[in-house]
Each structure stands twice: as C-alpha cells, then as structure tokens.
Amino acid sequence: MSRMPSSLTPRKRHVKEVPLEEAELARKAFGNLTEGEREVVREALAVMGRDPG
C-alpha cells in the first residue's frame, strides 16, 4: 500500500492544538455514551495513538 506524500496528508493536530470549543463538544458527546460505547472509543483512540497514519 502506498502512502500519500506528506505534503498531501492532513496534519495531525495535537491535543493542545484542538480549540476549546471542539474539546468541550467531544467531552459532552463522550459523556452521553453508554459504558460499552465508551470502551469501544477508548480502544479506538489507543489504536490511533499507536498508529496515527
């Protein structure tokens, strides 16, 4: 599988770069999930953290 040139790939935003409004919306949405849904999100975030590409 070929990768896109780095000039064409979207730049990963670090947590510190996420606007506060977006972070607040995400926090509220996470709070509305069931515990099972939260676990799925945690697992997905862990995978993305290991391989953000």
Rank of each mutant, 00 (worst) to 15 (best):
P52F: 08
D51H: 10
A23R: 07
E22T: 05
A46K: 04
R27W: 11
V40E: 05
G53E: 15
G36D: 00
L45K: 04
G53I: 14
R27K: 13
E21L: 06
R27C: 10
E21S: 11
A29M: 11
E39R: 00
A29W: 05
E35V: 13
N32T: 13
E24F: 12
L33C: 05
A46L: 06
V47P: 00
V47C: 12
V40N: 07
D51A: 14
A46C: 10
R27Y: 08
A23C: 11
R27M: 12
T34S: 04
N32H: 15
R42I: 09
A23K: 06
A29Y: 05
N32A: 14
E24I: 14
A26F: 10
R42L: 12
E21V: 12
G36R: 04
M48F: 13
E21K: 11
E43L: 10
M48H: 13
R50A: 15
G49T: 03
G49M: 02
G49P: 01
D51V: 08
A26E: 05
M48L: 15
G49R: 01
K28P: 03
E35R: 04
M48A: 15
R27E: 10
G49K: 02
R42Y: 06
G36L: 10
R38T: 08
R27P: 01
E24G: 13
K28D: 09
G36K: 09
A46V: 04
P52A: 09
R38K: 13
E43K: 07
E39I: 06
E43I: 06
A23Q: 08
E37W: 01
L33Q: 01
G36N: 11
R42D: 08
R38G: 05
G36W: 03
M48D: 11
E39F: 01
A46T: 04
E37D: 08
R27V: 12
R38C: 05
L25F: 11
F30S: 08
A29D: 12
L25M: 13
E22V: 12
E37S: 01
P52Q: 09
N32Y: 10
V47D: 05
G53H: 13
E24K: 11
A29I: 09
R50L: 15
G49C: 04
E35A: 13
E21M: 10
E35S: 06
L25N: 12
E43H: 07
E37Y: 03
R50P: 09
E37C: 06
A46G: 02
L45R: 03
A26M: 12
F30D: 02
L45I: 00
G36T: 12
E21T: 13
D51N: 13
T34A: 07
K28T: 06
M48K: 12
D51E: 15
V47Y: 05
V41F: 00
E35Q: 10
G49L: 06
F30W: 07
V47E: 00
V47K: 07
R50G: 15
E21G: 11
T34H: 03
E39H: 02
V41L: 00
E35I: 14
L45F: 02
A44M: 07
G36F: 09
D51P: 03
R42Q: 08
V40I: 14
M48P: 09
L33I: 01
G53L: 15
E35L: 13
A29N: 08
A26R: 02
T34Q: 03
E21R: 07
